[in-house]
Structure formats: C-alpha cells, structure tokens
C-alpha cells in the first residue's frame, strides 16, 4: 500500500513531437492546473508551517526549542528512530536475501504479509500493542506483576514505530535484488568467496542506494509517526512525548508559535527526505544508464 515510495528510476523524454503533441494552449492549461492544484494543496500548507512558526520573530522561534519538554521530545524521537531503523534494516536485508535469492513455497504470501503494516491504520497499529501489553491486555497482568511497563512508556512507542515502518527497507530491496539476479553472487562464490564475503563485497555494494533510500524513508516515518505513537504513548510530557506528540500538545494549548516551530523541524526533515530521495533516484538512474554510454571501440 505504499504506491509513492518505490524508487522511480526511469526517465523518459518529455516532449513528444509531431502528431501526438498537445496544442500549446492545452499544454499551458494543464501546467496551470497542475501548478494551481499543487500550490493550493502542497506549497501553501508548507509555507504556512514556516510562516506561522516565525510569526513572532526569530527569538520566539528559537525559544520554542529551549523548553525542556521540547528537548525531551526531540531526544525520545531520536532514540525511537535509532532503535526502529536498524531493526527494520536488518529485517529488510534478511527478508530480501531470502525472497529475492531463493524460490520457495509461500513466497507470495510472505511478500503480502510484509506489506501488511502499510494497510493497517496507524491508530490500529497502536491499538494492537495496547491489546497485547496494556493493563487489560493479554500480557498485561504478567507485566504488571513484574513491574514492566510497555504501554504508556518508551518500549510501546518503539514497538508501534517498528510496526509502522516495518516494510520500508524490505520493499526497496526486494524488487531491486530480484531484478539484479544472483549471477554476481554465483560468480563470487565460484571465485572462492565465502557467503559473508559475497554479501559484504558484492550484494551490499550493489543495493547500497536502494538500501539508503529505504533507510531514509524508514527514518522519516519513524520520526514523524503520529497516530500509532499517540495511542501507546500516554502523552506524559517530558517522558513519553515524541516530537509530533509535542506538536499536538502545544497546538491544543493554543501555543501556536511553539507548535509550528517544533513542526517546522519535522517539515525540514521531510524536505531533506525528499531531497535525499531525488539524489538517490538520480544516482540509480545514472547507474542504470551507464551501460548505455557509448562504449569505446574494440581495441
């Protein structure tokens, strides 16, 4: 269910000449409609974040970050991403190796199941952990007995984040590795390389851009997730609030400048993510185009 996130690597010439071209006024009408629609729905909201954040000037903007609760939220968000991203990275690599390199019964089912978290509402993603670990949950009594707290505590936030970012890395790697095939790995093995050497020296370098891309997306979602985390967090200021939750609290307290200031951090993260995505797509496109370069003549 993540239509937009697959790497887009094809680049097709845009102008189609002759009989199949639109007349100029149709073309400009389309461009105007596109820009108008995107301005209304994308650019203006984005601009609003920064404008509202700076409404009372730089000092008020910067002051929003000196609040200990804001700092705690930033810390918790970084911690959450630092746990969730590596976990899903390792999973993505393992899943891609198993699925893209071997043929086995149940492969398609496995692929569908990996995508499942994308089809689940963020709210439900949080809810399922409450049902498992909450006070009334399956393991609730056991956890209470041993004085372990998962829901309304950091572990719950991490778990919910791992769930919603679960497929990102795997989804980027699997199609790429399927397309690349395993001949290079076979070649490495035939040259005497061990399994690990093959993985580190051949497989990993070949998928590094897609891997990076998956990690970037995974990280963006991990830091920005709101619904799932909201359910399991308990909203304890300075303790179980991530940046998005802190934004919500500030907003509901009518502290708009601070809310938008903290939100602007996330907006910058989003813009960096998009920039990184474009960079990676450009790299992949460049690599894919390489064999098409004019090759030097034989001898």
């Amino acid at each position: 269910m993540a239509g937009p996130i697959a790497l887009r690597t094809s680049s097709v010439s845009t102008a189609i000449p002759g009989a199949t071209a639109e007349s100029p006024w149709v073309k400009w009408l389309l461009i105007a409609l596109t820009l108008g629609f995107l301005t209304l729905f994308l650019f203006v909201p984005l601009a609003a974040v920064f404008t509202e954040a700076l409404r009372k000037g730089w000092n008020a903007y910067l002051a929003s970050f000196s609040d200990p609760a804001a700092l705690a939220a930033i810390k918790l968000t970084l911690l959450t991403a630092a746990i969730a991203v590596p976990l899903n990275l390792v999973f993505g690599l393992a899943a891609a190796w198993a699925i893209a390199r071997f043929n086995f019964v149940g492969k398609n089912l496995l692929l569908t199941l990996i995508d499942l978290p994308f089809a689940v509402s963020p709210v439900i993603s949080g809810l399922i952990y409450v049902l498992l670990f909450g006070l009334q949950g399956w393991l609730g009594p056991f956890l209470a007995e041993h004085d372990l707290k998962i829901i309304f505590a950091v572990p719950g936030i991490v778990l919910a984040t791992v769930f919603v970012t679960f497929p990102f890395v795997a989804r980027e790697l699997i199609p790429l590795m399927q397309e690349q095939g395993s001949e290079e790995e076979q070649a490495a093995l035939s040259l005497g390389a061990s399994g690990w050497q093959t993985f580190w020296r051949v497989t990993l370098p070949n998928v590094k851009w897609a891997l990076l891309y998956g990690v970037i997306l995974c990280n963006a979602r991990a830091m920005g997730e709101f619904g799932a985390v909201s359910v399991v967090s308990g909203h304890i200021r300075g303790k179980t609030n991530t940046i998005p939750l802190h934004v919500e609290i500030l907003y509901n307290e009518y502290n708009f400048v601070a809310a938008f200031a903290v939100a602007s951090l996330l907006a910058i993260l989003a813009l960096l993510t998009l920039a990184a995505k474009s960079l990676v797509e450009w790299q992949v496109r460049r690599q894919a185009a390489a064999p098409l370069e004019p090759t030097p003549a034989e001898e």
């Binding site: 290079e184 076979q186 070649a187 490495a188 035939s190 005497g192 020296r201 070949n206």
Partner: peptide, 15 residues
C-alpha cells in the same frame, strides 16, 4: 568455491 573451477557466465556477471 572449493572445486577450483573458473566459471565464465553468459552475461559475464562482472561486479
């Protein structure tokens, strides 16, 4: 890897 064979792949499989 232990057979001491050199294998040349149809599409070369260069790294």
């Amino acid at each position: 890897g232990d057979r001491q064979v050199g294998f040349v792949f149809q599409h070369y499989a260069l790294f």
